[in-house]
Structure formats: C-alpha cells, structure tokens
Amino acid sequence: MSTFEPGLCTVTFRSLPPDRIVELAVEAGLAAIEWAGDAHVPPGDEPIARDVGRLSERAGLATSYGSYVAPPTDDLSVFRRALDSAIALGASNIRIWPGTRQRDSKDYSASERRAAAAAIRDMGAEAARHGVTVSLEYHPQSLTDNTDSARRLIDAIAHANVYLYWQPRPGLPLDEALAEIGQVGQHISHLHVFAWDSDRNRFPLKSASDYWRAVLAAMPASRWTGRRFAMLEFVANDDPAAFSEDAATLGQILQG
C-alpha cells in the first residue's frame, strides 16, 4: 500500500467556491486540499485564509498552500505575505515556484542560479520558524524543468526545510519518469497527479492507472517525514463528475 494519501489541488476548480470544493473532496473521500493562491486564498488576505482553513478543518481535511511566489523574481517580503496566508489557513506546507515563471532552466547563468538558491534558502528558513515546510513546484519552464537542474538546485539550496514536488511533464514516458524519481525521490514531499498527453489533452486518470502504480511502486525513501499527499490536479473538461471518477481511481491506485 502507498504511503501517499489522496488530495486535490484547487486550481482544478478555479471557478468553484471553497465550500463546494470541500464538499466535493469529502464526497470523494480525500484527505487533503492544496488551496490555490491565485484563486481561493489570495496572499495577504488572512481573513479569507482563516475562513477556508475552518472549512477544511471541520471537514477533516489537511491543507497545503499553493502559492505562486517565484524566487528570486519575488523576494522574501513577497514570500512572507504568502506565508502569513498559509499560517492563517492552517497549512503545514507552502508550494513555491523555483525561478522566474515561464523561463527555461537552460537560460539561467550560474550567478542567477545561485541567487535563486539563496532566495529559496532564506524562504525555507523563514517558513521553518513557523513550522511550515517549503516545497518546490516541479514544472516545465522553471528551475525544476528537468531532473539535472532540479537536483543541482536542491543541492545548492541545501536546507532541510526545502523539498521537491514531483509530477510528470505532459506525455513523459514511464521509463523517463522512473529515472527522474530515482534521482530526486529522496527530496520528494508530495505529488501532483493527472493524465495528460504531450499536447496537454486531458484524459480520465483510469487511462494512466498502470503508469501511476509503477511510479508509486518505484518511489524511493524520502527525507520527508510528514504525511504525504498525491493530489489530483486538473480533470477532463474541469468537470466535477470527471473529478469524482478520477478520485475513485486514485484511491484504488493508492490502495495498491
């Protein structure tokens, strides 16, 4: 059985209000929600964060905060606003983007990489003071857009409170996915789960069940010691019915 519990990223349903998202998550038997900073819990709006946190807590859902802080473009003062929202939300983890958004890792100079690592290290230290972990989005057009860059970045950050997410690039073949997690798996906190092809067409998660079973079976031991969540991110046609089917599939995958 997987050590990951099922969750949901609320970017999946940007147009839905938080109470409806919580309702869907509870109906699907999920364990956690990652609340989007660009939709449901804006950074700096602590009253909203507290309200959403209470909704989640009453439903028995753990929370993470999906921020769009992108160091070093965004500095420590920007991160603190997002961190304040994460704390008000009751989130144990905050996600940030490594590097300037929409920029390939190959386009960074050595000095720019050092600046990004230093900024993230400072953010990891600040979050640690409040008992919140920091996880880096693993995403195209970022400093984690390939395994070598991600590994070098996490080594340069060298902070015990900073971890990596993992998700496959759309259309990533299974053998390459397994090679990636073999190299960075010791740093992985949580997963973003979806079924896309290389053209970003979305499919039912059931079509990728064997893929995700293989990924989870190959996941190496991690230095992460908390609860771990495999969080659904995006579903076909943004349809709640498709989400319910994907959530049922995810539960079956995680049960082994």
Results as ranks from 00 to 15, higher is better:
residue 83 L to F: 02
residue 111 S to H: 09
residue 146 N to S: 06
residue 35 W to R: 02
residue 74 D to K: 01
residue 55 L to R: 06
residue 114 R to M: 12
residue 152 R to P: 01
residue 248 A to H: 03
residue 134 V to Q: 00
residue 42 P to F: 02
residue 19 D to T: 15
residue 239 D to C: 10
residue 65 Y to M: 06
residue 190 H to M: 05
residue 34 E to S: 07
residue 116 A to P: 05
residue 252 Q to F: 11
residue 128 A to C: 13
residue 110 A to M: 09
residue 224 W to N: 05
residue 109 S to L: 15
residue 71 P to Y: 09
residue 123 M to G: 04
residue 120 I to E: 01
residue 97 W to D: 00
residue 23 E to V: 15
residue 175 D to G: 08
residue 173 P to V: 08
residue 157 I to R: 01
residue 193 V to L: 01
residue 91 A to F: 11
residue 206 K to M: 13
residue 132 V to C: 04
residue 146 N to F: 05
residue 64 S to R: 11
residue 198 S to L: 13
residue 141 Q to N: 11
residue 11 V to L: 07
residue 59 A to C: 11
residue 75 D to W: 05
residue 235 V to L: 03
residue 188 I to W: 02
residue 79 F to S: 00
residue 60 G to K: 13
residue 63 T to K: 03
residue 62 A to I: 11
residue 147 T to E: 06
residue 205 L to V: 12
residue 25 A to I: 08
residue 9 C to A: 13
residue 201 N to D: 11
residue 189 S to T: 08
residue 44 G to Q: 05
residue 6 P to Y: 00
residue 237 N to G: 11
residue 7 G to I: 07
residue 53 G to W: 00
residue 153 L to V: 04
residue 135 S to K: 03
residue 234 F to Y: 09
residue 149 S to A: 15
residue 144 T to Y: 06
residue 183 Q to G: 07
residue 137 E to G: 08
residue 103 R to L: 14
residue 213 R to K: 13
residue 46 E to W: 11
residue 95 R to D: 10
residue 108 Y to A: 05
residue 163 Y to D: 09
residue 185 G to H: 01
residue 118 A to Q: 13
residue 168 P to W: 07
residue 130 H to R: 12
residue 252 Q to R: 15
residue 62 A to D: 14
residue 192 H to L: 14
residue 48 I to N: 02
residue 173 P to M: 10
residue 134 V to H: 04
residue 56 S to L: 09
residue 20 R to S: 14
residue 216 L to M: 07
residue 5 E to A: 09
residue 242 A to V: 08
residue 70 A to N: 10
residue 131 G to Y: 03
residue 133 T to F: 13
residue 33 I to H: 00
residue 56 S to H: 05
residue 163 Y to S: 09
residue 165 Y to M: 09
residue 11 V to Q: 02
residue 153 L to C: 02
residue 87 I to Q: 01
residue 63 T to N: 04
residue 176 E to R: 14
residue 183 Q to M: 14
residue 177 A to G: 08
residue 90 G to L: 07
residue 118 A to K: 12
residue 198 S to P: 10
residue 204 P to L: 05
residue 250 L to N: 00
residue 73 T to D: 09
residue 136 L to Q: 01
residue 125 A to F: 13
residue 135 S to C: 12
residue 14 R to E: 12
residue 252 Q to N: 12
residue 228 R to C: 03
residue 209 S to N: 03
residue 199 D to T: 15
residue 33 I to M: 05
residue 226 G to H: 11
residue 215 V to C: 07
residue 15 S to I: 15
residue 224 W to T: 06
residue 147 T to V: 15
residue 12 T to M: 05
residue 159 H to Q: 11
residue 2 S to T: 10
residue 228 R to F: 01
residue 228 R to E: 01
residue 205 L to E: 01
residue 161 N to Q: 07
residue 208 A to S: 06
residue 251 G to S: 12
residue 212 W to I: 09
residue 102 Q to C: 14
residue 56 S to Y: 07
residue 171 G to Q: 03
residue 150 A to I: 14
residue 109 S to I: 12
residue 254 L to T: 00
residue 139 H to P: 05
residue 3 T to K: 13
residue 132 V to A: 02
residue 244 S to T: 14
residue 160 A to K: 13
residue 48 I to C: 03
residue 23 E to A: 14
residue 191 L to G: 01
residue 143 L to G: 05
residue 100 T to H: 12
residue 64 S to K: 10
residue 243 F to P: 02
residue 172 L to T: 10
residue 208 A to L: 02
